[in-house]
Design a protein around this nucleic acid. Structure first.
Lengths: 218, 218
DNA sequence: ATGCTTTTTAAAGTGAAACTAAACTACTAA
DNA sequence: TTAGTAGTTTAGTTTCACTTTAAAAAGCAT
């Protein structure tokens, strides 16, 4: 297994490859490479038993592939916890360096890191940290853009993307803080939020990457 | 810079490439590769300004090469401190995993790790941790085999080699503990030691990889 | 100066990953 | 049903980093 193949697996995983078939184009776009290169690599991953792959149809992770992808994500998120909790990293910095560390972290290290951190349930961006057996504790969330105006909720998760993370952190957005939409401008206009009493404006695009508690009535 | 080139630099550094010219053969043996491959790589390292290299003479690190090698060693040793102090690693385990981590550790991470660990001066095997500016605090030591029988001293450093580390750790050898040679059998025979009151036997070869305080009279 | 060790050259190979260009599939909508 | 098109695969190269073997050359030491 190479760091590269790991990135393919992670990409497929994030594109929903646990349940559905994932198209080559999406993978190519995610990894920023030519579609033909993807076909090539998928062949290898299939031969190694990590994905189911039917030409022209798409690919799905095998149970072995799921295992690998999840362990990778687990390492990534544990490192993020360490980097932010103990080394004072910012959201985006933690994500960046975890991206490096995840590829060379032996399972022994993951296990001891988990213990050291006291078995955290979530990474600093709010995603659940998979258990060593591959189990993931999912709780239902909704994107902030789906929250009805005036309803109180709490920020639970943000998408991990360097630029976004910096933007959000500067806006003072924190996992767990209370939020209410004061105004949602039309035409994908900016959102005006009440964040723990402070008035904050963020773009529609950013709001679409923030996830909050699912409200009762939905 | 690739992990491989880093290993070459580290090898040259450990073979004394800060002061003297290092021969290709030694590098080839250290890295377990053919001598011709070394020549090849040295060419690249020279082109990149990391070593001085005169064909048939040998190689020496440039100041840039020294910097790289030392930063690598610094990362390695800081990780070892973390792994042993916080994650309960053994001597050999810490060395192994630090070997992986050192290659993907950005300077930002090294710096914050250093701070988190409260700027340790020594790695768990007793080697000095280089400062970020490249300065190393050397204190004069001597191999245990040179300690005269009956003289009291203290163990300050052990060579980092997986098998040796396991052997020593099982023998209960710890950095800082007091030691006295009770008997040194002839013909490179085993050493009988008084380790903090306990009577311990180790091989000549092991004793040659243990370093103790230099005694006054020497 | 001759014999041995060390080093270099030359030629080639390997493995992983990527690309372009051209052909092919499969779906979709007239 | 049949184009059209979006997506995918094939084929043929390319690149990069690293390594090897075999033979020639250099350096050194008695």
């Amino acid at each position: 297994m190479t760091p590269n193949k790991e990135d393919y697996l992670k990409a497929i995983y994030k594109l929903g490859g646990m349940e559905e078939l994932v198209g080559n184009k999406q993978i190519a776009e995610t990894l920023q490479i030519a579609p033909a290169s993807v076909t090539e690599m998928l062949g290898k991953l299939k031969r190694e038993g990590l994905i189911h792959y039917e030409p022209y149809k798409g690919s799905r992770l095998t149970s072995e592939g799921i295992r690998s992808a999840i362990l990778l994500v687990r390492g990534h998120r544990l490192w993020e916890v360490f980097l932010m909790r103990h080394l004072g990293y910012s959201w985006s910095e933690a994500h960046e360096d975890a991206e490096l560390l995840e590829h060379i972290t032996p399972s022994r290290l993951t296990a001891r890191l988990d213990q050291f951190l006291n078995y955290p349930a979530y990474c600093p961006h709010g995603s659940a940290i998979p258990h060593p057996d591959g189990h993931i504790n999912l709780i239902p969330l909704q994107p902030l853009i789906h929250l009805s105006v005036g309803t109180d909720s709490h920020i639970r998760r943000v998408t991990e993307e360097t630029e976004l993370l910096d933007y959000l952190q500067e806006s003072g957005i924190v996992i767990g803080c209370s939020v209410r939409i004061i105004e949602a401008a039309p035409y994908e206009g900016p959102f005006t939020l009440d964040l723990e009493g402070r008035r904050v404006q963020i773009s529609y695009k950013a709001a679409s990457q923030i996830f909050v508690d699912r409200t009762e009535e939905l």
